[in-house]
Design a protein around this nucleic acid. Structure first.
Length: 472
DNA sequence: TGAAATGTTGGGGCG
DNA sequence: ACGCCCCAACATTTC
């Protein structure tokens, strides 16, 4: 007789606290905690390189806090099937994920297990409000953020209570499981070593990040969040994405503080995440298809040279390059700069937002399908409740406004470190003696601007305006 | 969660 | 003293 077990299937919930599926599994005598790297079902949506690096460390962190963690690689449907043949399974527990490919895969597994009379139970661990519960009065989903959040979420049933960590867990080892190292999640040329220095990965790191944010960042969040050189953003996105901390835990702690503009604003940012998930749930093709179909006719240029310069942070526009180099060096970009570099790619370079989405997907440690695709559609102007297409960021003005002393830009572009702030965001305007004094030679140690700001802006606006005419 | 173009106002220099 | 012009500074409109 094979051993009788309950399976706790970890996915995007790599934590012990406030983990509903784990708590349910902990009532069983013998638990097999598993993680499956399922690139097969993910297909094009499989995790990018930066995410894999994070996953590697997060799994190790999780494993060290559990009696055991068994990892597998491949089609989750087959792997769970095979487990069901080798063990007597009392139950399978997991927390819900919302990517379309996972929803359809999980549905198949659920049906298969039901046929074998195996109890399968899924829980909500990563959204404050389930996307199928928030609708307008006419029963259709919200398409505008503010009413979605204010009338939909805030007026709905409050988020569930935070759950305690299981008091005890009896882990079982499956000798056919792989080791975490065998998943090959780390890159061959070890850029991950430098990246790792910027982060504390795992459940403990997530709690530290939240505490640090509440102590230092939150008090001036609303204004401070716009300045990349300041430390007023939470840096929680990646921990939330991997479920090292739950939004319920965050919401709960912030709501327990005296309410003000800063706490409200931060909570509304969590609301944007809910909104993105709602959009993805209602529109599974969000990552690839313009929500506003008139953008299907947009005359993208998709010039590979320009795309390459953007990726490498060599556009000749210092605030853009600083953002893109921050992405490459740390796996993260400050929110203000995500908007700046996004606007620049789509509107000044006329490159399809999907190229930006793919690059971010590969480079961001917090790459998240719902957030990434909803945000790129927002920047491009083709999404729901999107920034209007004519809102084109001026990288000079944005630099001057949001990095006024130039410290952020100079950190990531050391070759401009000696340039006076007056010319830092537009080095091509600097008199030649100023450039010489600062040891800057355009075209040699820092690029000439790859486009003309004014002309490219006008081209983009004209292309967009044509779109409107075709529609009619 | 823009920016540029255009419009308006009011203080000060100047004939 | 007065009108005229210039032009910041701010407001509104347009893309």
């Amino acid at each position: 007789m094979s051993k009788s077990i309950a399976i706790m299937w970890f996915r995007q919930d790599l934590r012990l606290s406030d983990n509903p599926a784990l708590l349910a599994a902990s009532k069983h005598e013998n638990i097999l905690p598993i993680y499956i790297l399922d690139d097969e079902n993910a297909g094009e949506m499989k995790m990018g390189a930066a995410s894999r690096f994070w996953l590697h460390h997060s799994l190790n962190s999780l494993k060290s806090s559990l009696p055991e963690l068994c990892v597998y690689q491949g089609d989750a449907i087959e792997i769970i099937d095979s487990l069901s043949k080798r063990y007597t399974i009392e139950a399978i527990y997991w927390n819900r994920c919302y990517e379309p490919w996972r929803i359809s895969r999980d549905k198949i597994i659920k049906e298969k297990m039901h046929k074998q009379d195996i109890h399968v139970e899924s829980f909500n661990a990563s959204l404050l409000w389930e996307p199928w519960t928030i609708f307008k009065e006419d029963k259709t989903p919200y398409k505008v953020f503010t009413p979605f959040y204010r009338k939909g979420c805030l007026k709905s049933t409050p988020p569930r209570q935070v759950l305690p960590q299981p008091s005890s867990l009896n882990g079982v080892i499956d000798n056919q499981a792989l080791t975490i190292d065998m998943l090959n999640l780390l890159p061959e040329n070890r850029w991950d070593i430098e990246l790792a220095k910027h982060w504390e990965i795992g459940e403990k790191g997530a709690q530290v990040a939240l505490a640090r944010f509440i102590d230092n960042g939150l008090s001036n969040y609303k204004k401070g969040r716009n300045f990349p050189a300041k430390k007023h953003t939470s840096h929680l996105s990646v921990h939330i994405h991997f479920g090292e901390i739950s939004v319920h835990q965050i919401w709960d702690q912030i709501q327990s503080l005296p309410s003000d503009d800063n706490t409200d604003h931060f909570c509304s940012e969590l609301g944007w995440r809910e909104f993105s998930y709602s959009l993805l749930y209602q529109q599974p093709e969000l990552p690839t298809k313009n929500l506003q179909t008139k953008f299907d006719n947009f005359p993208w240029q998709n010039n590979p040279m320009l795309l390459d310069a953007w990726r490498k942070g060599k556009t000749g526009f210092p605030i853009v390059d600083a953002g893109m180099r921050q992405l490459w060096q740390t796996g993260y970009v400050h929110n203000r700069l995500r908007m700046v570099v996004g606007s620049f790619l789509v509107k000044n370079l006329l490159i399809d937002w999907r190229y930006g989405e793919r690059w971010f997907w590969d480079c961001l440690v917090d790459a998240d399908h719902a957030n990434n695709s909803a945000s790129w559609q927002w920047v491009a102007g083709c999404g729901a409740d999107a920034a209007p297409y004519f809102r084109i960021f001026n990288p000079i003005t944005q630099g001057e406004k949001f990095d006024p002393d130039g410290s952020f830009t100079k950190k990531y572009i050391p070759e401009l470190a000696h340039l006076p702030v007056k010319y830092l965001f537009s080095p091509w305007m600097a008199p030649s003696e100023v450039l010489a004094e600062a040891n800057v030679t355009l075209g040699v140690n820092y690029p000439h601007p790859i486009v003309d700001l004014k002309a490219s802006r006008e081209t983009a606006l004209a292309a967009f305006s044509d779109l409107g005419k075709k529609e009619i």
